[in-house]
Nucleic acid binder design. Sequence first.
DNA 1: ACCTGTGTGAACGCTCTGTTACACGGGTTG
DNA 2: CAACCCGTGTAACAGAGCGTTCACACAGGT
Lengths: 226, 226
Amino acid sequence: MEPLLLFPDPAPPALAQALDLAGYPWKCAGSVEAAAALEPEDGWAGAIVVADADPDGAFTLCRTLRRRDVPLEPVLLLVSGVQLADLELRDDLFDDFCLSPFHPRELEARLKHLFWRTGTGTRPELVEYGPLVLNLETYQAAIDGKPLDLTYMEYELLKFLATNPGKVFTREILLSRVWGYEYYGGARTVDVHIRRLRAKLGEEHANLISTVRSVGYKFGQPRWSL
Amino acid sequence: MEPLLLFPDPAPPALAQALDLAGYPWKCAGSVEAAAALEPEDGWAGAIVVADADPDGAFTLCRTLRRRDVPLEPVLLLVSGVQLADLELRDDLFDDFCLSPFHPRELEARLKHLFWRTGTGTRPELVEYGPLVLNLETYQAAIDGKPLDLTYMEYELLKFLATNPGKVFTREILLSRVWGYEYYGGARTVDVHIRRLRAKLGEEHANLISTVRSVGYKFGQPRWSL
DNA sequence: ACCTGTGTGAACGCTCTGTTACACGGGTTG
DNA sequence: CAACCCGTGTAACAGAGCGTTCACACAGGT
């Protein structure tokens, strides 16, 4: 995903932190010129403009962004309560606004809805570990960019292991956590699924799942762990 | 100006008072039927739906409003902080939201910006995915330029899937999001509608909807975007 | 060399899905 | 008002896919 443009420079720590937590990349610019210099090749994903400290600069930046050949969307404005009146007659300069101080989850919800509304990229939920990528929304898996054709149980097992890399699980734990608490069956079932997973991962990556003799299995971190 | 539709009935005093102060006329309705009975000849100016007390009723009303021949705009949702997660996957049901308790001036600012925005017509009336085109205004569908004769449920189901391409939905999710919250019925209903959709899409495009065994259905091809 | 634990392949049986047929209700037509 | 059509929900069945189990080979540790 392309980064968001933030104004001013430096951005308020709370804003930067909220975006980091939500997983949105960003870059700061303190002026129109700095924004132009920092702009990625594929353009910004959007802009978040803080209008508290320097309203004039903020609105100037918004105006510039909107005057481009392809007007930048979305533009989210962060304003303090007393600034609400400043929005008067400036509706064309922003797509949404958020009161400052803001709740991180409100900001995240607004960004999400904004991206949905403007039709631009929404990030899928991913579980990644090295060459392995699991897309939780599409139920797809890929390794080295090549899609893996996993069955439901294989996917669930791999997802559980990959979300807890390095940790060892006994077969009983895996049965209860992946198969379900009420499940009562042979522990060897796990072995067979592990084997099929290794086979589908390919010879090169079969060692992503390692056997811990007399204990169980673990995912990743084959050698050097803390 | 036509009145705003408020939900539920009675509306929170703070909301009514804020609207009175801002000069917006309004009427309350506690159900879909009441809203239909109260609707002015020229239609509502918009709707403000409070989701705090009765989320199910609120979202059902939103869905009804959006399914009209001319989808009602704008819809402003009032939610409490803990409800932010409820907005997940419901982006199509509202145009903006406001955290409750709200500051009257924030509400006023949002309404103002909302009317400005919807007045300029930014709502996407088409949903496109590859050869498929859905016209949300005329309720028509076409594939490869040839019109599809879909029933109401088929259209709603396809619309929901096509607006979330690549994402997998369980039958339960589809029942609640397409059929409605209050719906209690067999999950196999979804299967049959999927099958009818595939049949109408034609042999060539039937694979636009793919089955994810033990999970549900998804539309279109993966978005392996980063 | 023995024993325990794990890898491997095949076969069984169940769950899930595709598909068809039918029942029900609302609306329309004669 | 009856007869019909259309849209929708539900039941039933068959087939395929998939999970589980078993039997045996193999490796590691004592």
